[in-house]
Each structure stands twice: as structure tokens, then as C-alpha cells.
Design a protein around this nucleic acid. Structure first.
Lengths: 196, 196, 196, 196
DNA sequence: TATGAATGAGAATTCATTCAT
DNA sequence: CATGAATGAATTCTCATTCAT
């Protein structure tokens, strides 16, 4: 029977879990809550998922692939590495804004939770980071970015800057600056900082 | 009963909890494991702490105060805002390097875990961030940093960059760059980016 | 709906259940396993059987009737009570040899399981035992067997001896003695013991 | 940790489990029933036992060792193999009479249940059987029992005869014959059957 | 203070059975 | 008749917390 990933219920459960995990955190979420939220019986969840962990992993992979593809596409539309990074920053923050729950889960449970960090090799996330490094390398080849920049450090600095910003967004209720302002600021000084 | 914070046992428990929380995560750590590691009985833990949550909070506050004081002192030694930020970056990463377990807990359990993020107003951490904002504002007043920089955004960008770097440090086993290189890079392009 | 006992599926399910119950035991067998083995859907089983218990009972009655009739016939062919008992012993062990799964179920689940022992009055099995008692009484009337033998005790002793032997057979992989040797031995000393 | 086999509670739990397993069977007994019967909390059971299986195994080993030692002693008091077997038969049936619950469990759950039969190498029971074989061999050496008797078959026949008898005892409510009569009958014709 | 055995609420998971298709 | 997805009651086991010693 496998996963029946096409099934409507599969998605209803993912949806419900996304919401509740984001709200209460993985460990504080009960299977029965997800079931109630999804409008199915507790047992039904186990038709679609191996166990509670599997819900989290599935939810992540399901969504992250989409995000990664989308980001790749947007970035590839631009030719200039500078524009690419600006696009990345804006798209990332927009994504977070539009998928608050998902963003919260990725930050809190998956990228951070020692359980998942250690057991689950988060390939997708690493690829996401690598997208940034690639842009930087490209800029270096073109002579736009300084040669002494270490892409492996810079990708983390850039991502970290955006990520901390989105954490603030995700967790605070009232936003003081709009997203594009923040994106522009961050890519702004980052770009100035790495330009040749 | 208050917190016999002077007691040697109190510290042994904090120490033990730091180690195990960092290793397995808050929810996957059993009180009995902390007790064993600390060389006390399970029940003894409840003489010094209200409950499991309280261990985590205490551990954090205990340590964070120290970190904050230390950072304030180091930063105040420098007069130049540029130097101050460079100092901050280096000191932060050094701290992480020297307190791997603690750093892991702050990242994974406290700054992230929705349980604590939402219930526990993390004053100390906000002050830590504010330290950066203050340096930036000072630099702006002195005309060293661009006026259009929003300190509230920049502090997060700077901290986020360092933080992502230290996450990498904390979680990866083999380090490719030494800490001061990373610190210099990060404060390097950040400073270039915000300079007038 | 009655039991469409003629249906091919009814027998396929009995067959499958016999195999799996013997292998894993009643409680550890899942309906879905029986269904898979029988090549039907889970729900189909409930068209032919009331519930899980009913499968076991049906399987037993179905088979036991056959065994009983067969044994009655074989025994009635002999006139001499001594020969009758020898025949019984050999036929019983042969039966076990040829129906390992069934024998296992009767021993383990039906004759033993307190659930079924207590709720299900096992008429067929009692008749099977009574067959032995009858032969003994006949022998006593003919003066061949000692009058002080209590048929109610002797039937159990004889059956028990054969049964323990077959349990050994059913559960051990390599047989050290062939069946007719064992049958001859057992009926041998039993007969000597009860002969006048 | 450990078994604390000396603990009074350990024995209260064993006692309770013996009673309820005998009454309802292993699979139909709930941990909470054992706990209630033993007058402890559910969780307490897990201080003394690994899991439900472990209760059954422990209960068996605890008791069987005692039985085995006791039987060995009684048998060794007699010099004559004939007397030894008579003693065995009587002692076995008396044991069953005095430990109805235990006897039921051994028969139903442990000697029979496919789960335990297959996973748990029942050494103690095999030794118990071997006790009979040893007496037979001894009798053969002394020329008292026929040389053509196969001890491996005869031990099972003898034990099986007693066992079937005790099953009857254990499971039927009104006893028609007293124990010593049955014991005498069984060892009676068995002995006649194997005597030289 | 310190102990650690005992507690029992709580939660994940299983699986016989049903029923809409 | 046949299906198999869905159900949800049932049950084992865990572990933070308590409290008598």
C-alpha cells in the first residue's frame, strides 16, 4: 500500500501536522490532535505514515523539494550574481512570510532539533545552502566578488542573516519593517561587503 | 525552598544537564539520566529545581548572564565601533568553541524550541542582540556607519551570520576553517556593507 | 448469511489460517495475514466467518470431524481390541505426521488455550478420547484387559502418551525414530500394562 | 534496574500473574489486572520486569527450578527404579493438585504457546523429562526394564500419560478419581509394560 | 537534605471489524 | 459477493514527579 501520496487524506494529514507542529512543537503535539485537525481517525494516520517521526520528515521533504525547485528557477532567471543574491533574499523572506507554519517547523524542529539533526541527513537543506555558494563562486569567476571570500563561510553568513531575520518574523507578532525592506538591507550590506 | 545556587550539587546538576541536553535534546533526556550523570538521586534534582523545564531555564540564565557580562566588558574595551563589532564576532565564535554543549542547547532548545520560545521571554538573549544594535547606533552617530542602516535589522543579520556559522561548527565534526578566519570574514563583509 | 461452506474461498481461508495459526499462534496472527495468504481481501473473511475466533473453531470442527470418522472406520476394521489400539496409535501418529499444521493448532491453540478450552466445549475431541475408552471397555468385556483398569484414566494415559510423542514430533525438526517405531513402542507397553 | 528478586513486591507480582494468567491466559491478561491483583501501580511492574513476556518467563523459571529440585530429591530417596517411577507419578500429580494455577500456565502458555515454545528454549522442562529417561536407563542397566525400550520415547509416553491426566484435573471441576488412584494406575500399566 | 521505589497519567501504536463503493 | 480504506477502542510501556524513610 505504500504511501498513497496522491491521496487527499495524505495531504490533509500533512496540512494538519504542519499547523500543529508549528504551533506546539513536535514533542508536544499528540497524534490524536493531528488526527482531529485532519478530520480522520487516529489509526488512519498510520495508514499513510510509519510513525510520528515519519510525518515530520515527510512533511519536510514534500515541501522542501518544492521550495528548492522554485528557488532554483527564480535565481536562474537572473544572469547577474548580484541580482541573483538579491532575488534569493527576497524570495526567501517571501516564502517565509507565506508559509509561516512550515518555516517555523523547519527552523525549530528540523534544522534544530537534535533528534532530527543527528539522525536525518538533511540533504535538501544543504542543497539550498549550496545554491548560495554557487552564486558566490560564479560572481568570483566573473570578477564581481572578491576572491578572498570563502563561499562556504559566506553562504552561511548570508543564509544566517536571512534566517535570523525570518525567525524574528515568524515568532514576533507585529512586524516593524516590511519584508522587501529587510531583504534589501540584508542583501545590501552583504553584497557591498563581498563585492570586489 | 529557593534555589540553593551556591550548593555544589546545584552546579553538578546544571553541568550534567548541559551535557546531556546538548547530546540528546531536551525531550529525549530523562531526569534519571541527568541524576546519574550528576551523581545524585532522581529526587535530589527536585530539591534544587522546580521541574525539568526549570533545569533548562536555570542552566540558560546561569550561563547567559556570565556570557553577557563578559561580552559587554570586552566590547567596552574598544572605542571604535568597527573594532567593537570585530571583537564581538571573534568573542562570540570563541565562546561557542569553548562551550560547545551550551551553544548547542541555546541554539536547539532555547532559541528554537517553540515551547520555550513562546512561554519564556528570553530577556538575556534580547539584550545580547541589543548589544550589537547599540554598537551600530553608536557608529551611525559617529558617522562611521551609513545612516540608512536599520539597527534592528542589522543586528539580526550580523548575529544570524555568526549564528549560522556556529551552528555549522557545533554540529559538524571536522572544521574546515579556523574560528578567527570565519570571524574576520563575517565581520569583514558585514562592516564593509554598513560602512558609510 | 450462513457459512457458504461449499465455496472455494471458504476453504482457501481455512487453509491459510491453518498454516499461519500453526506457525505463529492464534493471537499473533493478524486477519490481514490470513487474507493475504488466502488471496482475498480482509473484509471477505467476514463474509465467511463471524470473527477471528470463528475461524479457529471452524477450522477445527471441519477437520476434526473428518479425522474422527476416519479413525472410527480404521478401528472398526479390526475385531481384536489389542489390534484396535495398535491401529489407533499408528493412525494417530500418521495423522499428525501428515497434518503437522493442524496437529500443532489442536495442541497449542485449541486443546490448550484457556480461552478456547473454557468457552468452547470441545465435543469432537472428547469423542476422540471416548473411542479409546470404548476399545478398552470392549477388551475388558472380552476378558483381554484387566478389570481393574479404569477406562477414563487409561484413555487419557494412552492418548497423553501419543500426544506427548506427537508434540515432540511437531515441534522438533529432526526426528530420531520413525513413526511406526514410536507407535509400536507406545502401544506396546501400554498394552502389556493393561492386559489381563 | 536489576531484578530485586528478593523484594516482596516481586513475589506479589509473580503471585498475581500466576493467578490471572492461569485464569484467563497470557494474551487475555492485561498488565493493569496483574497490577491491581498485586496491589501495585501499573508502572511498578516495570521496575521488576522487563515486559509482559518477562513476567511469564520469570514466573516459570522461578517455580520450575523449585519443582525440579524437589522432584530430584524425592526420586533419589528411592533406590529401586520401579519405586522411583511410582514416586515420580505420584509426586507429579500431587504437585499439579497443589499448584493448579502454575500447572495450568505451564501446560497452556509455556509448553504449548507457539510464541514461547519457539522463542524460549525451555531447558528446565527438558531436564524434567530427562529425569524420567534417566530412571528408565538405570532400570535397563539393572535388568529390570526391557532393553528394547527406547528411553527417549518412553519418557515422553510416561510424561504424556501423566500430563494428559493432569490436564483433565486442572481443567475439569469435579474430579472422579483421586490422585493417588490415577497415579497408581498410570505407573501401574506403564511399569508392567516396560518390565523385563 | 538525600534517597530511589512507587506512582499513574499519558501517548503511540495496533488491529479486528465495518461499510460505502 | 468482494473490496480495502477507515475506524477507534484497547493496551503496553514510559517517565516526570512525589514522599516515606
Amino acid at each position: 500500500m505504500g504511501k498513497r501520496k496522491n491521496s487527499e487524506k495524505y495531504h490533509r494529514i500533512i496540512e494538519a501536522a504542519t499547523k500543529i507542529f508549528a504551533d506546539k512543537g513536535f514533542y508536544q503535539t499528540k497524534i490524536s490532535e493531528i488526527a482531529r485537525e485532519a478530520g480522520v481517525a487516529d489509526g488512519t494516520i498510520y495508514i499513510y505514515f510509519e510513525n510520528k517521526d515519519d510525518i515530520l520528515i515527510s512533511l519536510f521533504e514534500e515541501r522542501m523539494k518544492e521550495v528548492l525547485d522554485n528557488m532554483r528557477e527564480q535565481v536562474s532567471k537572473e544572469g547577474d550574481p548580484v541580482k541573483k543574491l538579491e532575488t534569493f533574499a527576497l524570495a526567501h523572506l517571501r516564502l517565509v512570510e507565506q508559509n509561516k507554519s512550515m518555516a517555523e517547523i523547519i527552523q525549530v524542529e528540523l534544522r534544530q532539533s537534535s533528534k532530527f539533526m543527528k539522525e536525518y541527513k538533511n540533504e535538501q537543506f544543504l542543497e539550498y545552502l549550496e545554491l548560495i555558494a554557487e552564486i558566490i563562486r560564479q560572481g568570483q569567476r566573473k570578477g564581481i566578488f572578491r576572491k578572498d571570500i570563502i563561499p562556504g563561510v559566506a553562504k552561511r553568513a548570508f543564509f544566517g542573516a536571512l534566517d535570523e531575520m525570518s525567525r524574528f518574523w515568524v515568532l514576533s507578532s507585529r512586524k516593524q519593517y516590511d519584508i522587501s525592506t529587510a531583504a534589501r538591507q540584508i542583501s545590501g550590506y552583504f553584497l557591498t561587503g563581498i563585492k570586489a
